[in-house]
Amino acid sequence: MAQAQSWDLRLKMKDKQTPLLLDRRAFAAGAAAMVLVAGTAGQLSAQATEPVWQQTLRSLVGDAKPIEGKVTLELPEIAENGNTVPLTVSVESPMTGTDYVKAIHVLATENPQPGVATFRFSPLSGKASAASRMRLARTQEVIALAELSDGKFLIGRRTVKVTIGGCGG
């Protein structure tokens, strides 16, 4: 893969320097290199365009598939002031020593920095619920990802319409 990329770079440089003198042999080599690169380029561009929140989500869940539901995100439908939006997250869980919610991660998908907070619970918590106030730069979906004691993940989503954006925007 690295070899194919350097090939591509060199060809590009050559193209720049001698755009009119490109002969048929160089063109054929270039075309071959392009075919080689095309496969990996697809993957690379997918990574480059993946939103930051998705990268964050992937770093949290790894290969696991989060299950939709059982996570309640209480947020206003319309937030007039994106600087301070009340948020409550909770997960249905018995919260016993063997079956409990370890953490809830909150992500704001369209904020310049999607990370909002991670709430971590303990056997003393009694209830997997926490509340705070968050910033929302614009209308967007907020995601809550719950990490369970058995290694499973639950996910909940909620869209908030924002009238005046937060984050000093």
Partner: peptide, 14 residues
Amino acid sequence: DEVFKADLQAGISA
């Protein structure tokens, strides 16, 4: 004994 912890990021309000 630990009860609750939170890692806060820039998305938390002032």
